[in-house]
Design a protein around this nucleic acid. Sequence first.
DNA 1: CCGATATGTTTCCGAACGCAAGCAACTAGC
DNA 2: GCTAGTTGCTTGCGTTCGGAAACATATCGG
Lengths: 148, 148
Amino acid sequence: MTQTSFLAVIRLLSAQALLEQKFSQELGSVHGLSLNDSLLMMHLEQAPLLRLSRVDLAKRLCVSPSTVTRMTLPLEKLGMLGREADARDARLAYVTLTDTGRKVILAARQTLERKAKEVFKDRWSEDEVATLADLLGRLTASQPNDLV
Amino acid sequence: MTQTSFLAVIRLLSAQALLEQKFSQELGSVHGLSLNDSLLMMHLEQAPLLRLSRVDLAKRLCVSPSTVTRMTLPLEKLGMLGREADARDARLAYVTLTDTGRKVILAARQTLERKAKEVFKDRWSEDEVATLADLLGRLTASQPNDLV
DNA sequence: CCGATATGTTTCCGAACGCAAGCAACTAGC
DNA sequence: GCTAGTTGCTTGCGTTCGGAAACATATCGG
């Protein structure tokens, strides 16, 4: 069990490095987004009012709050994200997904879907990919809201 | 299939962010290593002569060669890594694992194994972890030498 | 009401990385 | 052996990130 868990973790880390390399380049050149930018916008996409607070986003992305501040700044200037205050709590500064942003992330998602399909095309059966997604989902399930 | 592959990829990326956060702190405070430092040394650990060239390491870790140069510098000063020239090709500067380095990475590996076991302890059966490791292994198998 | 503590956000600083450029050494074709 | 192209490594520069600190606001206990 010890050895197996260790192996799973090491391979997960290695696999991520590989996938990030595969995805980030096309994502950047085609849509002008980083992988983390895309994940951030996808979290907004499925949020109740297309908005989330910065600390909430930080927890979902497993990054620091300061990173969220910096990530949202350029996207806000590009008109993909907006800023909204809370009526009750003046500390909160919600990040919102604009119409422009929703179109961009929709297109970016299609790119990601295509690349994801390529990754598994040859050596995985559909059932195996589903099993993988399910097993990984139990890891991410311990975190605040799951994607997709 | 498209949707399933996409889900698997997104969850893998999210899971990695979670695991990195979980592991890197203890790894740094206890052994003074980053996660990537540890992966680098584990690759050396299982290399034929405890040594690999810098470009080879870069490919295995999915980082740029310049990153390998910068990563090895402090570890070399700490005596964990060494440098060895090739008799036939004077361009090559192998990174070698010293005795000190071998002891350090052995201890770090135990920390990682313990944390890895914790991650899966509650919600996964042993078979499921093995399945996960196997499925992820097919991803990393497309890369130069697999770890463990 | 008021001080103490907690929470959300931003800014500053140092660390880590990729890319482009540069240098050294190897290889191929002539 | 000479030139041209390739490969391995390093350095400089810009970008991105985490942690500490600062600040504003909210909440709690008296």
